[in-house]
Amino acid sequence: MRHAFDQNVGVLRRMFASKLSGVFNILVIGIALSLPAGMYVLLQNAQGLVDQFSGTPQISLFMSRDAKAADVDALRKQLEQQPEIERVQFVPRAQALEQLKKSSGLSDVIGGLSQNPLPDAFIVYPRPNQAEALDRLRTELAKLPKVEQAQLDSAWAYKLEALLKFGRMLVLILASLLSLALVAITFNTIRLQILTQREEIEVSKLIGATNAFIRRPFLYFGAIQGLLGGITAWLIISVSLMLLNHQLVGLAELYASQFALHPLSLGDSLTLLFFSMYLGWLGAWLSVARHLSQIEPR
C-alpha cells in the first residue's frame, strides 16, 4: 500500500500547490454549505421550542373580575362534566400574581401595583386531540357563564409549527441548490486540474496506467476539498452560534430565562462532513468521467 499512498501524496501535493485558489475554493464551498446548515440549526432550535409547548396543549379560561367563589365552583363542576377534558386546575388570582413575579422577571414593576390586575383562571387540560378539535372546544368554553376569555395556549405553537414546515422546505430547496453548486465547483476545479496535468495523464496512459489509477488522485482531491469545505461550514456555524449565544445570554438574563441556541449535534455534524465529502467526490467523479476520456495519447 505504501507505493499507492506515496503516489497519491505526490499527486495531491502537486494539486494543492496553488494554495490561494485552493483556499478560496474551500471557502466558497464552506459558505455555500453553511447557509442551509445554519438555517437548519435555527430551525432545530425553533422546533425544540415548539415541542416544549405543543406537547401539552392547554386552554386558559380567564374568569370575569366580578366572579364569586360560587361561580368558580359552578364552573368547575361544569368543566369536569365535559368528556373532552381530562382535568382542570384552578389558579386563584393571588397565586397567578406570585407566579408572574417569579417567572417574568418583572417583580419590581408588579410590586408597584396597588391592586392585583389578574383574574381567577382555570387551566384546562384537554384529552390529546387535533388542533381543530381544540379550537372548537375553546369556542365552546368561551361561551360558558362568567368566562371572560378562553385562550388556547399552544395556538402559537401550531402556527409556528406551520411556519417551521415552510422553513424546512426552504432549507431543503436551498440545500439542494447549494449542493448542486458544490458539485459544480468541484467539477470545474477538477477540470482545470486535469487540463494542467494533461501531460502527466498522457504519459501515464502510454506507460500503462489504468483509468482507475489515473482517476484515483482526482477523486481523493475532490473528496478532500469537499471535506475541508464541510469543516469550514461547521466552523462558520459554530462560531456564529457562539457569537449569537453571547448576545442571547444578555437578552435572556433580562427575561430571567435560560434560553440558548444549541449547536449542531454530533450526528448532524458528522452528516454535514460526510455529505460535503461525498458531494466533492461526486463532482470529481463526474468531471473525471467527462474529461479523462478526451485525453488519449497520440
Binding site: R2, H3, D6, Q7, G10, S204, I207, G208
Partner: peptide, 15 residues
C-alpha cells in the same frame, strides 16, 4: 528520479 519512478508506481511495485 521521480520520472523514473512513474512506471513503477503505475505497476504497483512496493516502495
Amino acid at each position: 528520479f521521480d520520472n523514473v519512478m512513474l512506471p513503477l508506481q503505475i505497476c504497483g511495485f512496493d516502495y
